[in-house]
Amino acid sequence: MPRDGVGVRASGLRKTFDDGLVQALVDVDLEIAPGERLAIMGPTGSGKSTLLALLAMLDSPDAGEIELDGESVSRIRCPEEWRAVHLGIVFQFHHLLAHLTAVENVMLPLIGSGGRTRDIHRKAQNLLDSLGLGHRTLTRAAHLSGGERQITAVARALVNDPKLVLADEPTGSVDSATGEKILEILDEWSGRRGGTLVMVTHDPTVASWSDRIVSLRDGRAYEGRVHCLTQPTAAPKF
């Protein structure tokens, strides 16, 4: 199996909100091997989504450093370009554009990077076909069911054939059958592409699809699924 994913290393990440009153992340160290599937678990407000946003370069840490494929994100001159080429993001709430059809939503990442619209359309169409949504490609997002929207959002994250997918509660707003399908899609992508998958979830069943689990509690990271926390766990060595 090809291991073409992005290696992720984070060290000493700190992030606060509201002028330091809320500590979202506290000295978080994290290392993810290329092609690894990591689940990040933790209660609401534990800093999971904040960590994902930092990894996606949608936000920047107050302290600490993140490396993607060995390169510090502070040296990546155009995060948007990096995301367009290497990254797929699945948001907790699908964030589809309601006035666009399913296939048009899937096309968006590639449209932003240029290229022939016809080719991009064909690629997005084929992807939706393969995910079982071929019959709904021309339906506007506003008229898709919740499950169809989330599958479309997953397709949008995969359409650029990314090396890293960050998924924030990808199954959190859908029924169990759709959730399982979404996991199968991500699993298939991970297996075929060898990409790195980082998935935030509350659900232990979802987490069980991953190779490894990191838990966050009060902004601190712990190796494994943690119920009662005493000591932070050191980041794993690769």
């Binding site: 948007e80 367009a84 993001i89 932003g112």
Partner: peptide, 16 residues
Amino acid sequence: RAELALLRAVGWRKRR
């Protein structure tokens, strides 16, 4: 706002 933010998130540059 959400739409433009999404476009940035999926890789659209500021120029685009």
